[in-house]
Amino acid sequence: MTELAVTNTELHDGIPSTLVTRGLLAITPIGLCAGVVLSHLVSSNLLLSLMTQAVIGAILSTGVGVLYRQNGVVSFGHAAFYGSAAYIVGLATRHGVASIEATIILALVLPTLAAFLLGLVIVRVPGTAFAMLTIAIGQALFEFANKARDITGGDEGFRIEFPATIFGTPTSVFQKPGTMFLLCWAVLVLILCALHVFSRSPFGRLTVAIRENQERAQFIGYTTLIPRAMTYALSALIGAVAGVLAMLYNGFVSPDSLHVSVSSDALIMAVIGGLKFVWGPAAGAVVFFFVKEIAGDVTEHWPAILGIIVIVTSLWLRGGLAGALTSAAGFLRHRLSGTEP
């Protein structure tokens, strides 16, 4: 596994390690501010709504990316966590089981826990079979949601009645494009920072080592099952976060959120953006939504365009968009400072 593998220098995203921690402390507020600026620059609610969806998509695809970066396996079924989280909140609220805040926490905890337990079993399965397994699990859940009308409301889905405030914030904040975009953007930035820190932590490095050479990792004293299952759970948690945000924004739950097309879209975003980098999938989400919505107005052939980008990226531009940008930035930096790259 050479081309798509993560190298140590890529863990540092091409930037010298000494600058990273300081850089992170600087970049996070900048990133957050950028979101604020963006939301003020864009006045069209339609565009803001689209951007909100793009950010939610970015979060989901980041979850897919984490799984690949740390475990070396591809998930074609991440919608399972996305949709489950939405359904948990929806169903719990519909039956008045608990407060909305509690159900949101539950919607994050349950899929993560389930993923960990499931992971203990399925991370042992080799790559190709694992991919197909994720498809099967995702589709099984989809079919269940689709058909079990009495429990899930069937293929039509259902609306969620929100209370006036959620975590002390007026519910309208979650439903208006302008404010919701800011919120989702903040969540995305925080997740990316957290993942960056995680990937450099001992545990993060361990999972990369296990991914590179599971056998030797065992022979230097590590049980590999639990770290891998934990990584799977982490990627599920991120997917669940995206699902909760989507549900809060849309106020609606349906089996569509569990469909394999949601999973495959997330995977496309991750591949196009670059699986090597923490922020790759998020970049890919931007490209994806741009192609789908904006180019989609000009031409109907956006699926083919995306397909071609996926092919080209998988074959030749392994680093994806993030990789291309990083290389360009590195090149520029060296040119400007007059040093050798």
Partner: peptide, 27 residues
């Protein structure tokens, strides 16, 4: 060409082909 590489790459490429052919048929 991809036989010695990680199978994920081939899977992804065939997936991309799926998208392209789907669009072709629709067109």
């Amino acid at each position: 060409p991809l036989q010695d590489e990680d199978h994920v790459v081939t899977m992804l490429v065939t997936f991309g082909i799926l998208l392209v052919v789907g669009d072709l048929v629709q067109t």
